[in-house]
């Protein structure tokens, strides 16, 4: 009997002693401590950048994305926001994370979803460079128009309201990374009329042409 009591109390001690508070981590606790990549992603990013076919914005479970995008550009986007619809996540800009946490989150995501490479590869520069709108018009008509022209099945990319919503860099991301789960190939994959995809220069050309279709002079610069 005595032994049983001893054993039970030992088990109780062993199981309980270093159990931390069971309350769910809240925002400021996250700020103070280390983050689990998956749980930070689940509460802060997943609403837009979800995994698989869900989610409206670019999915981050996309090997192509981690090949091309560098940590610096991703950290920049998370810290300070991007375009019209991505808020800043840095604490000093009203977000929930410290700079260290953002860095560790990006490294964590790269480990989870990347191919072990640091980014900046994939055969294309990670930022938009100058392109020729007139060359882009030709690229569009051969590589994109079968889905995106006029009221094509995939919808117009020259809708003035759409063009007001998206930056040139955003257009570039859409072309480069694609949305394979929604039927849009990445830049270097086969497209109707372009079995080998586009070249890096053609990507910039076609972005330049789409951008030239903006109707007002309020070009989105960010």
């Amino acid at each position: 009997m005595k032994r049983a009591v001893m054993f039970c109390s030992m088990v109780l001690c062993a199981s309980g002693c270093d159990r931390p508070s069971a309350s769910p981590a809240v925002q400021h606790v996250a700020l103070a401590g280390e983050l689990s990549t998956q749980s930070a992603f689940d509460t802060n990013c997943r609403g837009c950048h979800s995994q698989g076919a869900e989610g409206a914005a670019l999915p981050l479970v996309n090997a192509n994305y981690w090949k091309v995008a560098t940590d610096a550009t991703i950290i920049q986007a998370i810290s300070h926001g991007q375009g019209r619809s991505m808020p800043a996540y840095l604490a000093s800009e009203g977000g929930p994370f410290t700079a260290e946490q953002i860095t560790s989150l990006v490294h964590g995501m790269r480990t989870l979803w990347g191919d072990g490479q640091p980014g900046g590869g994939g055969g294309i520069s990670p930022v938009l460079t100058a392109g020729s709108a007139s060359a882009g018009a030709l690229v569009f008509s051969t590589a994109c128009a079968s889905c995106h022209a006029g009221q094509g099945t995939a919808g117009s990319v020259v809708d003035p309201m759409y063009l007001r919503m998206i930056s040139d860099q955003g257009l570039w991301s859409a072309v480069v990374y694609g949305r394979s789960e929604l039927g849009m190939p990445a830049w270097n994959q086969a497209m109707p009329g372009r079995p080998t995809g586009l070249s890096a220069q053609e990507v910039c050309d076609v972005v330049s042409w789409i951008s030239s279709q903006r109707v007002s002079n309020e070009k989105v610069t960010k």
Binding site: G47, Q51, A56, S156, L182
Partner: peptide
């Protein structure tokens, strides 16, 4: 920030509608 747009509401949408889904979030 935590609840993704369900897949059935993102398929077959135009670029503008997809942007709208992002604005919705």
């Amino acid at each position: 920030s935590a609840l993704p747009t369900p897949a059935k509401f993102t398929h077959g949408r135009t670029p503008l509608e997809m942007q709208g889904a992002v604005v919705f979030q």
